[in-house]
């Protein structure tokens, strides 16, 4: 079983986690155009390579960010966005 290191709980089996998708910036509801909204809703980062993404440790309901390589499936790092600087 692949391990994912939760910033709060340490390394756990990856089936304890829920994948919440790539990190993306929110669209501004007051100023975003229809096209910007459509882009926000339907387009997500999908590179073959490094990807920042949200994960949740289900038993503890702890949500964090992982950086993972989507070709090799290596997890480069995980961090709590509340305490760490986003690159």
């Amino acid at each position: 079983m692949k391990l994912l290191t939760c910033p709060m709980n340490g390394p756990r089996n990856i089936d304890e986690f829920q994948y919440l998708g790539p990190v993306r910036d929110d669209a501004d509801p007051d100023t975003a155009s229809d096209a910007a909204w459509a882009r926000h809703v339907f387009r997500a980062a999908n590179p073959p390579g490094r990807l920042l993404e949200w994960w949740r440790h289900v038993p503890t309901n702890f949500v964090f960010v992982a950086e993972r390589d989507t070709v090799s499936n290596d997890v480069i790092r995980t961090f709590d966005p509340a305490t760490a600087e986003r690159p």
């Binding site: 079983m1 073959p48 989507t70 090799s72």
Partner: peptide, 13 residues
């Protein structure tokens, strides 16, 4: 698979 990936590996689960 439950998460995005460009790999054709198999997993036991």
């Amino acid at each position: 698979d439950p998460y995005q990936l460009y790999s054709t590996r198999s997993t036991l689960d």
